[in-house]
């Protein structure tokens, strides 16, 4: 466990010392301040408008961060050559994968918390507010979502370059986000192989829409049932485990050959 935590600490330290998070945070703050200053369509005074756009921005920022951080971890180790002294230590490849995933997940989870706090402050400045319990539930479920996205990014990056892994993670998560809720309707109208294919996609891709509590936050609805939140988190952990296992299968026998005769 100490080795996994050490590798996660390494990811954390790198992110703190790089500027990615700060750039996203400043961008988000700038967007929110602009939103508060402008009075588009006469909606400038409506707090729900600020909440809705602000939450969308926070989601997009944390999505970009989760994909970019997770998908570059392993390729970066190879490109920089740091994978060699790392694997020369008694660290298994499963530990490398888990440490990198944990680091990416914790970094993006912490950044998302900062995004939420920033948004809550802006909303409070407008005289509005979020329900405390719903906000906590939303962040918890967001963590579950980020666990899946970072696991996907890590899994793809075991065999792809950072850019390719990022692009693929963006495509898959976007497809899962936009298409999955519509698949049941499509299944009803499709026939034969197409119907089977749709069913396979429905069960193979993660259901990211389950982790979305934004409407409860925007419209001030009551908290989601605790059991539903718990089940969704368990589902998130299972999907994360599946993607990390697939990543490990691809990574465990990978050859690292820089400097070796080819």
């Amino acid at each position: 466990m100490i080795r996994i935590l050490t590798l996660a600490w390494l990811v954390w330290l790198e992110m703190i010392r790089r500027k990615d998070i700060y750039v996203l945070l400043i961008l988000l703050a700038a967007f929110l301040v602009t939103l508060m200053a402008l009075n588009l369509f006469g909606l400038g005074q409506a707090v729900s408008y600020l909440k809705e756009i602000g939450l969308l921005l926070a989601w997009v920022c944390s999505w970009i961060l989760a994909v970019s951080v997770s998908a570059r971890q392993l390729p970066q180790e190879e490109r920089q050559g740091t994978i060699f002294p790392l694997l020369a230590k008694p660290v298994s490849r499963a530990e490398v994968l888990l440490g990198k995933w944990l680091g990416a997940w914790v970094v993006t989870g912490a950044a998302t918390l900062v995004f939420y706090v920033l948004l809550a402050l802006m909303v409070a400045l407008r005289g509005g507010g979020f329900g405390g319990v719903v906000l906590a539930q939303a962040w918890l479920l967001h963590l579950g979502l980020l666990a899946i996205i970072t696991a996907l990014g890590i899994a793809f990056s075991t065999r792809l370059h950072a850019d390719a892994a990022s692009a693929l993670t963006y495509v898959v998560t976007l497809a899962a986000w936009l298409v999955m809720p519509r698949v049941p309707d499509l299944v009803l109208t499709a026939r034969g192989v197409v119907q089977t294919g749709l069913m396979v996609i429905y069960y193979a891709l993660p259901h990211l829409e389950l982790f979305d509590l934004r409407r409860r936050l925007v419209y001030g609805w009551s908290p989601a049932p605790g059991a539903a939140v718990l089940l969704t988190l368990v589902y998130g952990l299972l999907m994360t485990a599946v993607f990390l296992t697939l990543g490990w299968l691809a990574y465990r026998n990978k050859r690292f050959t820089r400097g070796a005769m080819l």
Binding site: Q80, T82, F84, G259
Partner: peptide, 8 residues
């Protein structure tokens, strides 16, 4: 110690 002194 690898040939190239690559590190974090």
């Amino acid at each position: 110690l690898p040939e190239h002194p690559d590190t974090y």
